[in-house]
C-alpha cells in the first residue's frame, strides 16, 4: 500500500490522526496533514483505509499493491 495526501484539499480535520496515528500527524501551525509513513506496515492497512474513507476532505489517496 502506498499513501499520498493532498495538502491543498486537506481541511485539517485530524480524523486521520485519530484513526491511524502511525501514518498521519498534523502540522502544528495550521493542522494540515503530515504523512509520517507513506508505506505503512501490513498491520496498519485497515486503519489507513478507514482514515481515507472517513477523511472529510477526500485528501487521502491509496494505491494498493496487487499482491
Amino acid at each position: 500500500m502506498k499513501i499520498t495526501v493532498d495538502e491543498e484539499r486537506c481541511c485539517g480535520a485530524g480524523q486521520c490522526v485519530l484513526i491511524a496515528p502511525e501514518a498521519f500527524d498534523q502540522r502544528e501551525e495550521d493542522g494540515i496533514v503530515v504523512l509520517l509513513d507513506a508505506e505503512p506496515a501490513e498491520g496498519h492497512h485497515t486503519a489507513v483505509r478507514e482514515a481515507a474513507s472517513v477523511c472529510p476532505a477526500t485528501a487521502i489517496q491509496l494505491s494498493e499493491s496487487p499482491d
Binding site: 491543498e8 481541511c11 485539517g12 485530524g14 490522526v17 485519530l18 498534523q26 502540522r27 502544528e28 501551525e29 495550521d30 493542522g31 494540515i32
Partner: peptide, 19 residues
Amino acid sequence: DDPEHARLRRMVSGAFTIK
C-alpha cells in the same frame, strides 16, 4: 471559495488540531 477561503481559514486552523 478557495484559495481565498483557505488563506483565511489556515490562519486559525492551527488552534483546532487534535493535540
